[in-house]
Design a protein around this nucleic acid. Structure first.
Lengths: 149, 149
DNA sequence: TTCATATATTTGTCACACTAACTATTGGTA
DNA sequence: TACCAATAGTTAGTGTGACAAATATATGAA
């Protein structure tokens, strides 16, 4: 009985996460931002950490490597990012924001922070704390192998 | 300052939703359930509501029509669902669980409830209520047009 | 040196999300 | 009756997500 009720969290969580992304993506499109929500996440992290490898970036944004490869491909095509061969390790790249990419981040950042605010109306600081705690707990509960160290 | 936090919460929400889905999908695969997480959601709803149209089902599971069309296609191919022409409206179908589909639901339901429980370790029923309330608030904040009724 | 193993990234495949455009049908209305 | 807007569903294109396998390079041990 309670079990059935609890099982609904997955549905609600998925539904809400999709709505948040959908809302942001819609605003991105209306504002002609020229990037998707996920591409923005990557750009933002690159602006805060120069010369990351793709593996390091993947760990930061919690995306798998193939997904990241494709997002980087698109960002390169748009001229916001460059892959620079790693000086020591020829398997690897250092990711570099172009000037155009830097400009883009500067231009979009305030707009996006504003967009993100909308989701959190009618919630209190205490709600945020609870929400964060619960999300983190769920994540950890399911995060099977913290890389078996 | 606070604004940056909002963006951070959006990230946590997305990350956790993906983890939940990924965990479930992995268990589905290990158990050879022969359906994806989203296909299960559709099957379950069909088992609780017979003779839905695709539009009605789409509203229940909060998926868009193209997505649902493909999920139904796959479930038909697997023999769990049938599209029955609507007797009055030739544009529409009534969705029907086959015997095989019914069996599948009966077989998987308890297993899936068990899988879903894992996320709630270390959390209380009260946490669940809070979580649900916050998710619903977020959803409503962004749900621009409550179908303008 | 040579080989086994590990790491960084890419490629391929399938599933899902969102948009836009399209077909067929329905139902109201002039 | 003829027209036309609305509705049900499908198709196509692009982006993302997960997973497996392939490629290239690096590293450590024999």
């Amino acid at each position: 009985m309670t079990q059935e009720l609890f099982a609904r969290y997955s549905f609600l969580l998925d539904r809400t996460a999709r709505k948040v992304k959908q809302y942001a993506q819609h605003q991105f499109k209306t504002g002609e931002f020229d990037v998707t929500v996920d591409q923005w996440l990557v750009l933002k992290n690159l602006s805060e950490n120069e010369l990351l490898s793709q593996t390091e970036l993947a760990n930061l944004v919690f995306k798998d490597h193939p997904t990241l490869t494709r997002i980087i491909d698109l960002l390169c095509k748009k001229g916001y990012v460059e892959r620079i061969p790693h000086p020591q390790d020829r398997r690897s790249f250092q990711l570099h924001l172009t000037n155009s990419g830097l400009e883009k981040v500067g231009e979009l950042k305030p707009k996006i922070l504003e967009i993100r605010e909308k989701a959190w109306e009618n919630l209190t600081p205490k709600d945020f704390e609870e929400f964060k705690r619960i999300l983190d707990t769920i994540y950890k509960n399911l995060d099977g192998h913290p890389i078996e160290e």
